[in-house]
């Protein structure tokens, strides 16, 4: 597996994927991650703390958003850094769920195309939910 960044230009889309979140996806993530905060599976608790309803774990959104980049990069050892800001919750309706769309574009290229910053645009039900979502990768030797 090799990653050649020299053929890329800023603005190129390197990966995209659409995800459907349902309540069972939130329960599965709760179990897998150990985050059992009830605002991610109980509407009554979510409403009692002033939310509109059950929302996805921020770390679930962060976790799935990087997957298309992980697949594109090929070797996970080439990923140096991944950061996000949680700017808006993803509410997951009991019956209709939620849609999360991810588009990964080249945000910046380092000198000699040795590194690249991949910027993620992540929307939940059509609204941006992550800010400054950036993955730094380096080219394979």
């Amino acid at each position: 597996m090799s990653l050649d960044l020299a053929s890329l230009s800023v603005g190129d889309v390197v990966a995209e994927r659409s995800f459907t979140l349902t309540r069972d996806a939130l329960v599965r993530y709760a179990g897998a991650s150990g985050d059992f905060n009830p605002i991610h599976y109980r509407d009554d608790v979510a409403v009692s703390v002033g939310l509109d309803g059950v929302l996805a774990h921020g770390m679930l959104t962060m976790g799935l958003a990087v997957q298309p980049v992980f697949d594109w990069v090929g070797d996970p050892a080439l990923v140096d850094d991944y950061q996000v800001r949680f700017t808006r919750p993803v509410f997951v309706h009991a019956e209709t769920g939620a849609t999360v769309d991810v588009v990964a574009k080249v945000g910046q290229l380092g000198a000699d195309a040795a590194t690249a910053r991949i910027d993620l645009t992540v929307t939940g039900n059509g609204q941006t939910v992550l800010g400054k979502a950036q993955v730094w990768v380096h080219a394979s030797a």
Binding site: F19, A32, G63, L64, V66, Q67, F70, D71, Y82
Partner: peptide
Amino acid sequence: SAAVFSVNPLNFDVQAARAAGYDDLVAPPT
């Protein structure tokens, strides 16, 4: 890996992970 919707063989298939130079399954980035 299933919980974060991974479809990457390195997360699920030991042979694929070893073929890529890892000792065992690779965990997702988060």
